[in-house]
């Protein structure tokens, strides 16, 4: 089987978030970029399966929509074990653009399993995997928390609100994965980093696409307000506030 993992290039999760140009653009100065953590988990799981069943998974390809600056992220994916990298040379303006670019390339190849992280840690969109499956007219399984290949068949479990379902699907399909699918992401070895130098990283020119949405402006959350004290004889008020004001229960 051939597995494709779609990876997004995102700021390191410890990045201090700032904006420029009147809060219309993310300030990229000094930002370190990483593989989106959910995508990295998808890749990790694919690699684990390939390691465990050498003959079953023929090849793992990673694909990214981005400009040349995202290549280190693709190289990292190659260093931890992906066999091939593809970069579609386009700015990932919105989820629909990204999905359209991906769909165009994928439809010309023959992947059996396409994996996406359920969201990216920058736009928190939960969009690309689902959009891609629709553009490709493929079945999709979302919120996948367990993925394996046994006797040539795909085994999937997906999270539902209040439980878990075992789902079967024909291939090809799009698996949209969430946390739990793999343990910790891999650390590249010296051998892996060296090997990544010579692994193929293909650059494909973008097609014309359109955007459906735009992140017009950004705001930072308001600074923490002082602790709101509640009378110990009125505990009910605390629960009400948590429910109605903080909206956490």
């Amino acid at each position: 089987m051939k597995i494709l993992v779609c990876i997004s290039n995102v700021p390191d999760t410890t990045t201090k978030i700032k904006f420029t140009d009147n809060n219309t653009a993310f300030d990229q100065a000094g930002v370190q970029w990483i593989i989106n953590p959910w995508d990295e988990l998808a890749l990790t799981r694919a690699l684990d399966i390939k390691d465990a069943q050498a003959g079953m998974v023929e090849e793992i390809t990673v694909i990214n929509v981005g400009l040349a600056a995202t290549e280190p992220t693709i190289r990292k994916a190659l260093a931890i074990g992906a066999d091939k990298g593809i970069r579609i040379n386009a700015e990932p303006k919105d989820a629909f653009t990204v999905a359209s670019q991906l769909a165009d390339v994928i439809s010309k190849e023959s992947f059996d399993i396409i994996l996406c992280g359920i969201e990216s840690s920058d736009s928190n969109g939960n969009n690309v995997g689902g959009m891609l499956s629709e553009l490709l007219d493929m079945p999709s399984v979302s919120s996948v928390s367990h993925f394996d290949i046994k006797d040539g068949k795909v085994e999937l479990k997906r999270e539902i609100d209040g439980g878990q379902e075992t789902v079967s699907t024909p291939i090809p399909f799009v698996g949209i994965v969430q946390k739990g699918i793999a343990k910790e992401p891999r650390i590249p070895s010296m051998r892996g980093i060296m090997g990544a130098r010579t692994k193929p990283l293909q650059v494909i020119e973008a097609i014309q696409t359109e955007t459906l949405t735009e992140f017009a402006t950004y705001d930072l959350p308001k600074p923490k307000a002082a602790c709101k004290k509640i009378d110990p004889d009125n505990v009910k008020e605390l629960v009400q506030l948590l429910h109605n004001e903080a909206k956490v229960i």
């Binding site: 949405t213 735009e214 017009a216 950004y218 930072l220």
Partner: peptide, 19 residues
């Protein structure tokens, strides 16, 4: 135009839907 959390809740984006 509608607000949503981005950057894992470290910021809020005002999203414009163009369709």
């Amino acid at each position: 135009t509608i607000a949503k959390k981005v950057f894992t809740a470290k910021a809020i984006a005002n999203v414009v839907i163009k369709t």
